[in-house]
Design a protein around this nucleic acid. Sequence first.
DNA 1: TCTGAAAGCCGAGCTCA
DNA 2: TGAGCTCGGCTTTCAGA
Lengths: 153, 153
Amino acid sequence: MLDGRDKKIIDYLQRDAAVPVADLADTVGLSVSACWRRIKNLEDSGLIARRVVLVDRRKANVAMTVFVAVRTSRHSIGWLDTFREVIGAIPEIVEAYRLTGEMDYLLRLVVPSVEVYDTVYKELISKLDFMDVSSFISMEELKFTTAVPMNYI
Amino acid sequence: MLDGRDKKIIDYLQRDAAVPVADLADTVGLSVSACWRRIKNLEDSGLIARRVVLVDRRKANVAMTVFVAVRTSRHSIGWLDTFREVIGAIPEIVEAYRLTGEMDYLLRLVVPSVEVYDTVYKELISKLDFMDVSSFISMEELKFTTAVPMNYI
DNA sequence: TCTGAAAGCCGAGCTCA
DNA sequence: TGAGCTCGGCTTTCAGA
């Protein structure tokens, strides 16, 4: 269903989607039309979900990353729905996961400074009750990629 | 330096970079040429770093997210360099941060299953010494966006 | 069925008023 | 800065493997 060339195409486009089809065709060893058709198929199938631009976080003045681990005492669907709504509306929260283990939820925030983080923190706790909130400030981003491995398909 | 329209343009492109310039110009209330020039400037300035495709994780068979918090006893530059190298070479590790507080590093992994996670885990501990490794499996992704807030620029 | 060549056409990229 | 032209490159068509 998906051969090595398809994987190569996705691998490439996950890193750079601004490349002309002709160049990409060249690197994977296909003609322009064949390569274009494969890209089209990958988009139609939904494997390639969308195209976006990635912003330089430093230049956008949100260089600081903070992880927030929260625990709640309210384990209900209603609480979760509200939580989802609240974090969805806060643009500084870029990732949120419900976890196994001692911490219930893990959030990743991008902010300009500790001061702004504190504002977001206050906004968060003003809207929802938490049993425990722990913050971890990132000193260094060692790796960040939007490219997922193509070995498992 | 950067007005409301520029921010609108980036906000839009962070969600969908496949939109034709003419459509985008329309939504932000600009002529095509003006809009195109602004996009060009944003790219040249580096604020828009690059364009990528985002892959549907379920369809790519890497639906499972695992967080790995690690502590090390080796606090040296050499160790950090090796660590960086090792995590850079493992495609399942999509994010890695050096943190303040009790956990030294936090990794985010995307894998098909617990079995595969175990393989990656073994690969990791075979290459580096850790004092402590804790895994947190994500039950649900509540939010994930590559779009950063444009309020701070 | 998937390929590559080649034509057609749309829109990005540039010129000018 | 906005209108309009130009042309590169996306998209389609068609024949062959």
